[in-house]
Design a binder for these strands. Structure first.
Lengths: 213, 213
DNA sequence: GGGCCACTTGATTGGTCAATCAAGTAACCG
DNA sequence: CGGTTACTTGATTGACCAATCAAGTGGCCC
């Protein structure tokens, strides 16, 4: 292999990113050794440092990868199955519930985990984490706006907070019960919030990409 | 010093626990070296291993310390300043806001941080984390029950989730804005939830310790 | 076909980690 | 006063860590 990047399986760089993505999600950043990443990717350290200047640079790439993947991998599939804007919001939360269930309540949102673990001084990483949160909130805010609720940006921030905090509690208790309690309360909350009285600031009020028809 | 444990400042064990409590909060568990703890406590490794069998055992002790401290250090002071049960709930959230503000939005809830960082297989630690969450939720649920709202345990779980998720977002954005957005939405949520129709399961309905007027 | 360059190999480096250990010090008890 | 016990000291151990490096390998272009 050489020159311009070759096919799929032997694409070492992509394998490294994918291995790191998985391991940072499963064990966190500090608890993942470079050797773990190398073993999982089937590469060795020289190759690694050919593509990345440091473990930290790899983290930044992983976070960028998440930001690119959130629309096609998370938002779009949920949107496709939603009939109303608020269906979409609840569908997002249900999709995290599935992930929790699949992992016996041990792993939840990879971004949330890194948000609390990564040193606060690491601004490049936290900017990327914030960008991921913004993408998530942007999609929820659009749906909330389309549903005609007041303060869609606040609502989106709130819903994201609930999801992250619910995942955290379910991990600690190793049970879906806290997550399900939060799901019930989000439903109650959305059902009781006021509708916006005037056109909201960001969107023109006519239907947007979230959940046509 | 010897024999039965001596005075306060030279109590090595207590200094070790306090140093660890601070450092686990500031940097997390994996990112805190034993040498950092020893330096901060003014002890050396032999002393450490006289009192604790491992770094992991120290973590368990720190978590137990938090569980003992939550009532006198967090809940009681907030309760003392609250005039109504829901005042108490919002006061709790405001106290976390203060901590966030004091640290330039970098450090929030020490338990939440550990909940996501500590390996899921470490059951003794996660049991203690869950116990801390339960103490927090117990106090909130009592207040919610006293306020006469439906499903107090669900509401408490929900409020804790919001707090943890809001702290997380404020850390990522290095801004109080996400936290404040969540505060507004919690207020709106609590104002619109239905009252319980019948006496609730756990409490006898007459006023409890939370916020006598 | 010769040289260049992208990429790989894996041993190695220096540092830090949690944990161990043998040797000490001093308070209390008999 | 001599022994026991609680605690301290700090050097040491071996494992592991991220990062470096010199020596390759092989496809592509001139």
């Amino acid at each position: 292999m050489a020159r311009t990047a070759p096919a799929d399986p032997p694409d070492t760089r992509a394998r490294l990113v994918e291995a790191a993505r998985y391991l940072f999600w499963e064990r966190g950043f500090a608890n993942t050794g470079l050797s773990d990443i190398l073993a999982r990717a089937g590469a060795n350290s020289g190759s690694f440092y050919h593509f990345f200047e440091s473990k930290d640079a790899l983290l930044r790439t992983v976070l960028d990868t998440y930001a690119e993947a959130i629309e096609p991998m998370l938002l779009a599939p949920v949107r496709a199955e939603s009939r109303t804007p608020l269906d979409f919001v609840m569908g997002l939360l249900v999709s995290y519930r599935g992930r929790l269930q699949d992992t016996d309540c041990t792993y939840g949102c990879p971004i949330g985990r890194l948000a609390l673990e990564i040193d606060a001084e690491n601004m490049p990483a936290h900017e990327r984490i914030a960008r991921n949160f913004d993408a998530w909130k942007g999609a929820v805010a659009a749906a909330v706006r389309e549903a005609g609720l007041a303060r869609p940006d606040d609502v989106a921030t709130f819903v994201l907070a609930v999801m992250e905090g619910a995942v955290m509690q379910s991990r600690a208790h190793r049970s879906l019960a806290p997550y399900d309690a939060c799901l019930r309360q989000v439903t109650a909350y959305l059902a009781t919030q006021p509708r916006a009285r005037t056109a909201r600031k960001t969107a023109p009020r006519c239907s947007r990409k979230g959940s046509r028809r």
